[in-house]
Amino acid sequence: MVDNNNFALKTNNVYVHYGNKMAINNVALDFPKNEVTSLIGPSGCGKSTFLRCLNRMNDVIDSCKVEGSFIMNNTIDIYRDDLPIENLREKIGMVFQKPNPFPKSIYENVAYGPKIHGVTSSQSELDDLVKESLHRAGLYDEVKDRLTDVATGLSGGQQQRLCIARAISIKPEIILMDEPCSALDPIATAKIEDLINELKENYTIIIVTHSMSQASRVSTKTAFFHLGNLIEEGDTSKIFTKPDKEQTNDYITGRFG
C-alpha cells in the first residue's frame, strides 16, 4: 500500500475556469515528499494555471474559479477560509520564469521574507539565515563581497538563484517553479538543476518545464498535461522509456502533428 504520509500535497477533482473557459479539467495529482515532480505539456495546456492553484496565486485573478481539493501533509486544506494566505506562502514558495528580484540589495532580497514572517529573532540570526540561504542556492561565493549591491545588477542566472535563495529563506516545505531556466544559458541552467537536486533533500519541488531533457534530468515523477487534462503521470524513467499513452509518447518524442 502507498504510504499516505509520503505525499507533501494531494490534489483531487481539480477544475479551473477563467470566466466560462475551462483551463483545468478534473485533475488529480499527488506530489511525493522530497521529490521533484515536473509538469510538462504544450503551451496553453494549463501547467501554470495548475501550479498557481497550489499556493493560491490564482486567487488574485477575478475571473479565475478554482474547484477541487488541495490537501497538504494529509491534513491542511490549503483553500480553507480561515487559513491566512501568508501562512500558506510560508509553506509553499514560488520561483517564476523571469527572475524577479526586488530593486533592493542582495541582502534585503533574501532577508525580506524572514523579516515579515518573523522567522528569526535577532539581527545575527537573520545574517546567518541570509548567508545560509545564499549558500544553499549556490550563490554565496559569487556575491559575498557585495551583499549590499542592488540585486538587479546580477546576471540572469544569478538573479534566478537569488530568487531561489529568497524562496528557501523562509523555510518552505514545497517550492513551485514555473520554467525557472527558460531565460538562462546552459551553465546557469546546469547550476539551477544541480541546485534542484540538492534542494530535494529538504523540500518537495514541483517544476513546470518546456524542456523534456530538463524534466528527465531533474524529476523523479512527470505529469503530462494536454488541453487542461492530465493525460498521464508516472515515474520519470517510465514516462521517458515507455509511457502508457500514445499521446504522451507523441509529445515527448516531438511528434506534434
Binding site: 531533457s213 521517458f240 522509456t241 515507455k242 509518447n249 518524442t253
Partner: peptide, 9 residues
C-alpha cells in the same frame, strides 16, 4: 536528436 521513449527504444 537525443531520442526518448519509442524512438530511444
Amino acid at each position: 536528436h537525443r531520442p526518448v521513449a519509442s524512438d530511444l527504444r
